[in-house]
Computed example of a mutant assay.
Amino acid sequence: MKIQEEKIIFEEGYSFKSFTPSLNECFFWHSHPEIELVYIETPKGRGIRHVGKHISDFTESDLILIGPNVPHLNFDYGIKTDYNQIVVQIKDSFVNEGLVNVPEFDRIKVLLESSFLGFSFKGETKKEVGRMLKELKSDRKLGSLLDLIKILQILANSKEVEELNTEDTRAKLFSYNKVRMDTIYEYIHENYHKRLTIDEVAHLVHLSTTAFCRYFKKQTNLTFTNFINKYRINMAKAFLLQDFAVGDVCYKVGFESISYFCTLFKKLVGESPTNFKNRFLHK
Protein backbone atom coordinates (compact mmCIF):
# COMPACT_ATOMS: atom_id res chain seq x y z
CA MET A 1 0.00 0.00 0.00
CA LYS A 2 3.05 2.26 -0.13
CA ILE A 3 4.57 4.06 -3.06
CA GLN A 4 6.42 1.59 -5.26
CA GLU A 5 10.19 2.04 -5.34
CA GLU A 6 11.62 1.62 -8.82
CA LYS A 7 14.99 -0.14 -8.90
CA ILE A 8 17.11 1.40 -11.64
CA ILE A 9 20.17 -0.39 -12.97
CA PHE A 10 22.82 1.48 -14.95
CA GLU A 11 25.30 -0.04 -17.35
CA GLU A 12 28.83 -0.09 -16.03
CA GLY A 13 30.66 3.10 -16.92
CA TYR A 14 27.51 5.23 -17.35
CA SER A 15 26.08 7.91 -15.09
CA PHE A 16 22.71 8.02 -16.86
CA LYS A 17 20.43 5.95 -19.06
CA SER A 18 18.02 6.89 -21.85
CA PHE A 19 15.17 4.64 -22.96
CA THR A 20 11.63 4.65 -24.40
CA PRO A 21 9.22 2.90 -21.99
CA SER A 22 5.62 2.05 -22.87
CA LEU A 23 3.43 1.55 -19.79
CA ASN A 24 0.14 3.13 -20.78
CA GLU A 25 -1.87 0.16 -19.47
CA CYS A 26 -0.12 0.28 -16.10
CA PHE A 27 -0.70 2.61 -13.14
CA PHE A 28 2.86 3.05 -11.84
CA TRP A 29 2.84 5.41 -8.84
CA HIS A 30 6.48 5.27 -7.84
CA SER A 31 9.67 7.00 -6.83
CA HIS A 32 13.42 6.42 -7.11
CA PRO A 33 16.64 8.13 -5.92
CA GLU A 34 17.57 9.10 -9.48
CA ILE A 35 16.78 12.40 -11.22
CA GLU A 36 14.42 11.91 -14.16
CA LEU A 37 13.81 13.92 -17.32
CA VAL A 38 10.74 12.91 -19.37
CA TYR A 39 9.67 14.03 -22.83
CA ILE A 40 6.43 12.63 -24.22
CA GLU A 41 4.58 13.35 -27.46
CA THR A 42 0.93 12.39 -27.93
CA PRO A 43 -0.28 14.33 -31.00
CA LYS A 44 -3.85 13.02 -30.89
CA GLY A 45 -4.32 12.43 -27.19
CA ARG A 46 -3.80 13.75 -23.72
CA GLY A 47 -2.05 12.56 -20.58
CA ILE A 48 -2.01 13.03 -16.82
CA ARG A 49 0.80 14.94 -15.11
CA HIS A 50 0.96 13.79 -11.48
CA VAL A 51 4.16 14.78 -9.68
CA GLY A 52 4.17 14.94 -5.89
CA LYS A 53 0.89 16.64 -4.99
CA HIS A 54 0.49 18.32 -8.36
CA ILE A 55 -2.12 16.93 -10.75
CA SER A 56 -2.90 18.42 -14.16
CA ASP A 57 -3.12 17.32 -17.76
CA PHE A 58 -1.16 17.88 -20.94
CA THR A 59 -2.08 17.76 -24.61
CA GLU A 60 0.26 17.04 -27.54
CA SER A 61 3.54 16.97 -25.57
CA ASP A 62 5.17 17.45 -22.18
CA LEU A 63 8.69 17.98 -20.82
CA ILE A 64 9.17 17.33 -17.10
CA LEU A 65 12.16 17.28 -14.74
CA ILE A 66 11.62 15.32 -11.52
CA GLY A 67 14.01 15.28 -8.58
CA PRO A 68 15.15 12.31 -6.47
CA ASN A 69 12.57 10.39 -4.44
CA VAL A 70 9.60 12.44 -5.70
CA PRO A 71 6.53 10.20 -6.21
CA HIS A 72 5.14 10.45 -9.73
CA LEU A 73 2.80 8.65 -12.09
CA ASN A 74 4.05 7.34 -15.42
CA PHE A 75 3.17 10.03 -17.95
CA ASP A 76 1.77 7.62 -20.52
CA TYR A 77 -0.81 6.18 -18.11
CA GLY A 78 -4.18 5.80 -19.80
CA ILE A 79 -3.15 7.21 -23.19
CA LYS A 80 -5.19 5.43 -25.85
CA THR A 81 -3.68 7.05 -28.96
CA ASP A 82 -0.20 6.79 -30.49
CA TYR A 83 2.57 8.40 -28.45
CA ASN A 84 6.34 8.55 -28.14
CA GLN A 85 8.10 8.79 -24.77
CA ILE A 86 11.76 9.33 -23.89
CA VAL A 87 12.96 8.95 -20.30
CA VAL A 88 16.42 9.92 -19.07
CA GLN A 89 17.41 8.82 -15.58
CA ILE A 90 20.50 10.30 -13.94
CA LYS A 91 22.42 8.90 -10.97
CA ASP A 92 21.84 10.82 -7.74
CA SER A 93 25.62 11.16 -7.37
CA PHE A 94 25.75 13.25 -10.55
CA VAL A 95 25.18 16.52 -8.64
CA ASN A 96 27.29 15.96 -5.54
CA GLU A 97 30.19 14.27 -7.30
CA GLY A 98 30.06 15.04 -11.00
CA LEU A 99 29.32 18.77 -10.78
CA VAL A 100 31.18 19.62 -7.57
CA ASN A 101 33.61 22.58 -7.65
CA VAL A 102 32.94 23.29 -11.33
CA PRO A 103 31.71 26.91 -11.47
CA GLU A 104 30.48 26.57 -15.06
CA PHE A 105 27.91 24.07 -13.78
CA ASP A 106 26.51 26.30 -11.04
CA ARG A 107 23.19 26.93 -12.82
CA ILE A 108 22.75 23.22 -13.50
CA LYS A 109 23.47 22.43 -9.85
CA VAL A 110 20.81 24.90 -8.71
CA LEU A 111 18.32 23.39 -11.17
CA LEU A 112 18.93 19.80 -10.08
CA GLU A 113 19.08 20.61 -6.37
CA SER A 114 15.64 22.25 -6.55
CA SER A 115 14.14 19.65 -8.89
CA PHE A 116 12.33 18.03 -5.95
CA LEU A 117 9.61 20.59 -6.70
CA GLY A 118 9.11 19.16 -10.19
CA PHE A 119 9.52 21.42 -13.25
CA SER A 120 7.41 21.59 -16.41
CA PHE A 121 9.01 23.28 -19.43
CA LYS A 122 7.07 25.00 -22.20
CA GLY A 123 7.45 26.76 -25.53
CA GLU A 124 10.73 26.80 -27.44
CA THR A 125 12.55 25.13 -24.56
CA LYS A 126 10.28 22.10 -24.82
CA LYS A 127 10.67 21.94 -28.61
CA GLU A 128 14.46 22.26 -28.58
CA VAL A 129 15.09 19.84 -25.71
CA GLY A 130 12.57 17.38 -27.15
CA ARG A 131 14.49 17.35 -30.42
CA MET A 132 17.82 16.90 -28.59
CA LEU A 133 16.47 14.03 -26.49
CA LYS A 134 15.37 12.22 -29.63
CA GLU A 135 18.95 12.45 -30.91
CA LEU A 136 20.58 11.50 -27.60
CA LYS A 137 22.54 8.28 -28.07
CA SER A 138 23.47 6.78 -24.72
CA ASP A 139 25.97 4.39 -26.33
CA ARG A 140 28.29 7.28 -27.25
CA LYS A 141 29.46 7.54 -23.65
CA LEU A 142 31.42 10.83 -23.34
CA GLY A 143 29.66 12.35 -26.33
CA SER A 144 26.23 11.53 -24.93
CA LEU A 145 27.20 12.89 -21.51
CA LEU A 146 28.24 16.19 -23.07
CA ASP A 147 24.94 16.29 -24.97
CA LEU A 148 23.08 15.72 -21.70
CA ILE A 149 24.98 18.55 -20.03
CA LYS A 150 23.98 20.84 -22.92
CA ILE A 151 20.35 19.86 -22.38
CA LEU A 152 20.57 20.55 -18.63
CA GLN A 153 22.20 23.93 -19.33
CA ILE A 154 19.31 24.89 -21.61
CA LEU A 155 16.83 23.91 -18.91
CA ALA A 156 18.79 25.76 -16.24
CA ASN A 157 18.74 28.99 -18.29
CA SER A 158 15.12 28.69 -19.42
CA LYS A 159 12.42 31.12 -18.32
CA GLU A 160 9.72 28.89 -19.85
CA VAL A 161 9.32 26.83 -16.72
CA GLU A 162 6.62 26.12 -14.14
CA GLU A 163 7.19 24.81 -10.62
CA LEU A 164 4.70 22.01 -10.06
CA ASN A 165 4.86 21.90 -6.26
CA THR A 166 5.32 24.60 -3.66
CA GLU A 167 6.64 22.24 -0.99
CA ASP A 168 8.90 19.24 -0.58
CA THR A 169 7.00 16.12 -1.67
CA ARG A 170 9.78 13.55 -1.62
CA ALA A 171 8.69 9.99 -0.87
CA LYS A 172 9.82 9.94 2.75
CA LEU A 173 7.14 12.54 3.45
CA PHE A 174 4.47 10.25 1.98
CA SER A 175 5.31 7.24 4.13
CA TYR A 176 2.26 7.72 6.37
CA ASN A 177 -0.21 7.29 3.49
CA LYS A 178 -2.43 4.23 3.84
CA VAL A 179 -4.80 4.84 0.94
CA ARG A 180 -3.70 3.62 -2.45
CA MET A 181 -4.02 6.36 -5.03
CA ASP A 182 -3.89 3.72 -7.74
CA THR A 183 -7.18 2.28 -6.43
CA ILE A 184 -8.82 5.69 -6.67
CA TYR A 185 -7.40 6.38 -10.14
CA GLU A 186 -8.42 2.99 -11.46
CA TYR A 187 -11.96 3.33 -10.14
CA ILE A 188 -12.35 6.81 -11.64
CA HIS A 189 -10.89 5.71 -14.96
CA GLU A 190 -13.30 2.80 -15.21
CA ASN A 191 -16.39 4.71 -14.02
CA TYR A 192 -15.92 8.38 -14.97
CA HIS A 193 -18.76 8.11 -17.52
CA LYS A 194 -21.20 7.10 -14.78
CA ARG A 195 -22.77 9.10 -11.98
CA LEU A 196 -20.07 8.87 -9.30
CA THR A 197 -20.54 9.66 -5.62
CA ILE A 198 -17.94 10.42 -2.99
CA ASP A 199 -19.50 7.79 -0.74
CA GLU A 200 -18.74 5.04 -3.29
CA VAL A 201 -15.06 5.91 -3.61
CA ALA A 202 -14.63 6.51 0.12
CA HIS A 203 -16.07 3.07 0.83
CA LEU A 204 -13.74 1.54 -1.75
CA VAL A 205 -10.65 2.74 0.14
CA HIS A 206 -12.14 2.13 3.59
CA LEU A 207 -12.52 5.74 4.71
CA SER A 208 -15.49 7.70 5.93
CA THR A 209 -16.75 10.28 3.46
CA THR A 210 -15.42 13.14 5.61
CA ALA A 211 -12.00 11.53 6.01
CA PHE A 212 -11.81 10.74 2.31
CA CYS A 213 -12.60 14.35 1.36
CA ARG A 214 -9.82 15.61 3.62
CA TYR A 215 -7.38 13.01 2.30
CA PHE A 216 -8.19 13.62 -1.35
CA LYS A 217 -7.95 17.41 -1.05
CA LYS A 218 -4.62 17.11 0.76
CA GLN A 219 -3.15 14.79 -1.88
CA THR A 220 -4.39 16.59 -5.00
CA ASN A 221 -5.24 20.16 -3.94
CA LEU A 222 -8.64 19.58 -5.58
CA THR A 223 -12.04 18.58 -4.30
CA PHE A 224 -13.26 15.24 -5.57
CA THR A 225 -15.95 16.94 -7.68
CA ASN A 226 -13.45 19.31 -9.29
CA PHE A 227 -11.10 16.43 -9.99
CA ILE A 228 -13.85 14.38 -11.66
CA ASN A 229 -14.88 17.35 -13.80
CA LYS A 230 -11.29 17.92 -14.91
CA TYR A 231 -10.85 14.21 -15.61
CA ARG A 232 -14.03 14.10 -17.72
CA ILE A 233 -12.99 17.19 -19.68
CA ASN A 234 -9.58 15.60 -20.31
CA MET A 235 -11.27 12.48 -21.62
CA ALA A 236 -13.54 14.68 -23.73
CA LYS A 237 -10.44 16.16 -25.37
CA ALA A 238 -9.31 12.69 -26.40
CA PHE A 239 -12.70 11.85 -27.93
CA LEU A 240 -12.89 15.20 -29.74
CA LEU A 241 -9.48 14.54 -31.25
CA GLN A 242 -10.90 11.25 -32.56
CA ASP A 243 -13.54 13.32 -34.39
CA PHE A 244 -16.56 12.39 -32.24
CA ALA A 245 -19.42 14.90 -32.32
CA VAL A 246 -19.60 17.34 -29.39
CA GLY A 247 -23.00 16.04 -28.28
CA ASP A 248 -21.83 12.43 -28.33
CA VAL A 249 -18.71 13.32 -26.35
CA CYS A 250 -20.79 15.08 -23.70
CA TYR A 251 -22.68 11.90 -22.85
CA LYS A 252 -19.69 9.57 -23.35
CA VAL A 253 -17.79 11.28 -20.53
CA GLY A 254 -20.68 11.38 -18.08
CA PHE A 255 -22.33 14.79 -18.44
CA GLU A 256 -26.10 14.98 -18.74
CA SER A 257 -26.35 18.53 -20.14
CA ILE A 258 -24.64 19.67 -23.34
CA SER A 259 -24.86 23.33 -22.33
CA TYR A 260 -23.21 22.62 -18.96
CA PHE A 261 -20.56 20.49 -20.67
CA CYS A 262 -19.73 23.28 -23.14
CA THR A 263 -19.63 25.91 -20.38
CA LEU A 264 -17.33 23.82 -18.18
CA PHE A 265 -15.12 22.86 -21.14
CA LYS A 266 -14.60 26.52 -22.05
CA LYS A 267 -13.89 27.41 -18.42
CA LEU A 268 -11.22 24.72 -18.01
CA VAL A 269 -9.73 24.67 -21.52
CA GLY A 270 -10.18 28.28 -22.57
CA GLU A 271 -12.19 27.58 -25.71
CA SER A 272 -15.36 25.77 -26.73
CA PRO A 273 -15.32 22.04 -27.58
CA THR A 274 -16.04 22.87 -31.23
CA ASN A 275 -13.14 25.33 -31.48
CA PHE A 276 -10.81 22.88 -29.74
CA LYS A 277 -11.79 20.08 -32.08
CA ASN A 278 -11.55 22.16 -35.26
CA ARG A 279 -8.21 23.71 -34.29
CA PHE A 280 -6.45 20.41 -33.62
CA LEU A 281 -8.05 18.40 -36.43
CA HIS A 282 -7.29 21.16 -38.91
CA LYS A 283 -3.68 21.29 -37.74
Rank of each mutant, 00 (worst) to 15 (best):
F116I: 11
G143V: 06
E104L: 12
F174P: 00
V201T: 05
K159V: 02
K126C: 14
K126L: 15
E163F: 07
E124M: 10
L145N: 10
L204P: 00
D106Y: 05
R140A: 15
T166A: 05
S138T: 10
E200M: 12
K137F: 07
D182F: 11
T183W: 05
V110E: 14
L145C: 06
L164F: 09
E163N: 03
N191A: 05
L204G: 04
E162G: 00
S175C: 03
E135N: 11
L164A: 04
H189M: 08
L146V: 15
R131P: 00
R131C: 02
E135V: 09
E104V: 06
L111T: 11
L164T: 09
M132D: 05
K194A: 12
L111W: 11
L117Q: 03
D168R: 00
L146W: 09
S144T: 08
G123A: 04
V161L: 04
Y185S: 04
I188M: 02
N101F: 08
N101K: 13
I108S: 05
Y187F: 15
H189C: 08
L155N: 09
I198E: 13
K134G: 15
R180Y: 02
K127R: 10
S120L: 09
D199P: 00
R140F: 13
V129I: 13
I184Y: 01
H193S: 14
D182M: 13
R131M: 08
K134M: 10
N165I: 04
A156I: 03
L152E: 04
L142E: 14
D182S: 15
L164M: 15
L204S: 06
K150H: 08
V110M: 07
K109Q: 12
N177Q: 11
N101Q: 03
E135D: 11
E135P: 00
Q153T: 14
D168F: 02
Y192P: 00
S144A: 15
N101M: 11
S115K: 02
F174C: 04
E160W: 01
K126P: 00
L111N: 11
R140S: 11
S175D: 10
N101H: 10
